[in-house]
Amino acid sequence: MKITTPRLTHHVLTVEGRTTGEPVLFVHGNVSSSAFWRDTMAALPERYRPLAADLRGFGESDPAPVDATRGVRDWSDDLAELAESQGLTGLHLVGWSLGGGVVLQFLRDHPALVRSLTLVNPVSPYGYGGTEGPDGRLTHPDGTGAGAAAANPDFVARLKAGDMSDESPTSPRNVFRTSYVKTPDGIADEDFYVRSMLTTRVGEHNYPGDPVTSAAWPGVAPGKHGVLNALAPTHFRLDDLHEIDPKPPILWIRGADDVIVSDASLFDLAHLGALGVVPGSPGTPAQPMVTQTRAVLERYGNYREAVLDDCGHSPHLEHPAEFRRLLTDHFGEA
C-alpha cells in the first residue's frame, strides 16, 4: 500500500488481514527493498502486525534525494513520520544491514517509541569504511576510504541497466549469490530478490551518491549526497547510544560467514589493500565492523548476540526457521 506523509510517499508491504496486533516494522538493507522481508512477515504469529517500508530511493517509495550530511537520518526521520501517521507505538524494529543503521538512529532519536530492536548483520555504528579499531577512530579526518567513489562502477552500471544476467562477477545476480548469501542453491526464488535489488534508484543523490576523490590512499572520500556517503563515518556515528533512556532490549543476529559486514570485509578498501587487490596500501588496517558493533552494544548493556553458523549476510533468507524463532522469542521477552 502507499502512505503519503509530508516528507514522502512510502510504499509499505503488509500481510493481508493483519491490521491489529503488536506492530513490527522491518527495514531493508542497501540495494534491496521491503520484498526481502516477504516470507518473514508472512510467517509471524497472528499476535503481530508486520509492516515493511521501502526506504526513499528503493523499491516503490519516492526516489527522494538522500542528504548524506545527515547520516541516515533522512531514512529514520521518514520512518518516524510514517509511524506517527499510522499511530504506531511500542514498535518492534527490525533492521538489516543499512537498515540496521537506520533503526539504531531511530532508537537514538525516539527511544520511547521502541519496544524492542533487532539488528540483522547491521552496518557498524561507526559507518562503513574509513575507520580503525573498536572505538571507530577515523583513519583520516575527511573520512578517506569511505563514500560513493568506493562503489564498483561496473556493478553500478549493471544495476542502472536492470541487468538480470549472470554473465559478469559484478552483475547484481552474482553479487547476490556471492555476497548476500553464503549458499545460493538454498534460495528458492532468486529472481524475486534480484528484481528487488534492481528497484534501487541509481544516481548521485541516491545510490551510490556523488563520488569524491582524495589525495590519500585509497583515493576516495565521502561526498554530500546519496547512500554510501550517508554511511561514511564523517556523517554517521552512533557511539553515544548508551546515553538514551529508556533502553529497550536489542537482539543482534548475524551470519558467521558474512563477507559484507565483518572484521575482514571484502567490500572494505582497507582490507582489499591488505590482500593486494587494491594496490599501494600504506598498511591501513581493515575496519573491524563486528568488533565495533559489539563495543557499542556492550556500553549500551541491554543486548544479546546470536551468531548463525554456515550463514552469510542474510540470515532471514538463509536460515528462515531459526531466524523467526530468535525473532519471536525476542519479541515475547520484550
Rank of each mutant, 00 (worst) to 15 (best):
M1A: 10
I3C: 10
T4Y: 08
H10I: 02
H10V: 08
V12T: 09
L13M: 10
G21Y: 11
E22C: 14
P23T: 11
V24H: 09
L25Q: 00
V31A: 03
W37Y: 11
R38D: 09
M41L: 11
A42S: 14
A42Y: 12
R49Y: 01
L51P: 04
L51D: 04
A53G: 06
D54N: 08
R56F: 03
R56L: 06
G57M: 04
S61C: 10
S61D: 05
D62N: 10
P65V: 07
T69E: 05
G71R: 01
V72T: 12
S76P: 11
L79V: 11
A83C: 14
A83I: 04
G87H: 09
G87F: 08
G90R: 10
V94Y: 01
V94M: 05
L104Y: 08
L107Q: 03
R108M: 05
D109H: 13
D109P: 12
D109I: 09
D109Q: 14
H110A: 05
L117G: 01
L119Y: 07
V120G: 01
V123A: 14
P125R: 03
G127M: 03
Y128N: 14
Y128K: 13
G129T: 09
E132F: 11
D135G: 15
G136Y: 08
R137F: 10
R137V: 15
H140C: 05
P141D: 08
P141H: 10
D142F: 13
D142M: 11
G145M: 10
A148R: 06
A149G: 15
A151P: 06
N152W: 04
P153Q: 12
P153W: 08
D154N: 14
F155M: 04
A161Q: 12
G162T: 05
P172F: 02
P172V: 00
P172D: 02
R173S: 00
F176L: 02
S179V: 11
S179T: 14
Y180R: 12
T183I: 13
A188I: 01
D189P: 11
F192E: 10
F192R: 14
Y193C: 00
R195H: 12
R195W: 06
V202P: 04
G203A: 09
G203E: 04
H205L: 15
G209H: 04
G209Q: 07
D210H: 11
P211E: 13
A216N: 15
V220I: 15
A221M: 03
K224T: 12
G226V: 04
N229Q: 15
N229M: 00
L231E: 02
H235S: 11
F236Q: 12
L238D: 13
K247N: 02
L251C: 07
L251A: 13
I253L: 14
R254I: 05
V259N: 12
I260V: 15
V261L: 05
D263K: 06
L266N: 08
A270T: 06
L272E: 11
A274L: 15
V278E: 12
Q287Y: 12
P288L: 06
P288M: 08
P288V: 09
M289G: 09
T291E: 07
Q292K: 04
T293R: 05
A295C: 06
E305S: 03
A306R: 05
D309R: 14
D309E: 15
C311F: 07
H316V: 07
H316G: 05
L317E: 05
E318C: 09
P320I: 03
A321P: 07
F323Q: 01
R324E: 01
R324F: 06
L326P: 00
T328Q: 02
H330Q: 02
F331E: 01
A334P: 12
